[in-house]
Design a protein around this nucleic acid. Sequence first.
DNA 1: AACCGAAGCAACCGCCCACGA
DNA 2: ATCGTGGGCGGTTGCTTCGGT
Length: 341
Amino acid sequence: MGRSPCCDGEAGVKKGPWTPEEDKLLVDYIQEKGHGSWRRLPKLAGLNRCGKSCRLRWTNYLRPDIKRGRFTDDEEKLIIHLHSLLGNKWSSIATKLPGRTDNEIKNYWNTHLRKKLLGMGIDPVTHRPRTDLSLLAGLPGLLAAAGSFGGAGSATGAWDMNALRLQADAAKFQLLQGLVRALTTAAVPAPAPGMDNLMALLAASNGGQSGMNNGGQHGVDQSMLLQQCQWDGMNNLPALTNSAPASGMHNISGMFDSFGAGDGLSSTELGGHGGASGSNVTVDAVAPPRPMVANDQECNNNGGGGVSCEQTPASSPFDGLESLNLMDDLNTDGSWKDLLE
DNA sequence: AACCGAAGCAACCGCCCACGA
DNA sequence: ATCGTGGGCGGTTGCTTCGGT
């Protein structure tokens, strides 16, 4: 049974925005005597507010160590990375961002970061590629998101490599899904191996709406994404033949299998893995081993919320791909069961 | 200039847990 | 063991600001 709100029964207690006068009363009192019991504080400080409101105002806005202003790119990346590990444990995330409050981070996530991930084809809850029907039509949005993700960097044409890699991960997934779709609909000639043909195939399979042939509408150099796709071995596509869909399906199934296994994709890219500098695109010749993330003692502070403290591989947008069972989503005629209407 | 919808953000709500009596 | 209280947390609301028409 939850207890009743602390302000229940306190008729006449003021709600809504705080005035500068109220702020001053609160700050002066706490700086002189400390907050002590929040419930008793309003009366002692001469405030017509409930204690809970005072606590929130102090912890979120009046504390002297609060950092205001825009989140930096590094902070954004850190939030995304921590969210992939901790979920909506905003207070835990806030402990890693000095001067930022859980409320501020939560708001920023809901209003900015969540939308960015969605635009990149990444589920903001699971941090994995989205598998809903918007995926195949999502490349234009992906590119749009790519154009906006880098903040000041993208505005100057300097690509954020970590963001690009994340986007490339999603792009690879979409490419493969489009490939499966194309081969299984048998309406498109089977391609010769190679990325260029794969791209063309995807465009054809998607009714020419893939956005990859939009002439750089969003200022995205297609070759950059291609290089990213090749970065971890995407270039080593299995040979595709002109055979019937069943045969193609076999090959693609193998692609998915190899994709999920030790492909070196790592969301620690988000955590500052230096893949490139400046605006030059560099491609890791050998993807680094996926690091283990130690969820150490701070994972104990959630009051039994259930965060595992075991060592777990750092999550990636592609982590768990092998468990997506994409082939299970295909009907015998090659159409998607749920992804396509 | 006025209107309207979207986005952003401060603040509130209600549930939960820890802890002490 | 039970209950009441204090405080923390995530989710939601509603006001304000912004941008497009």
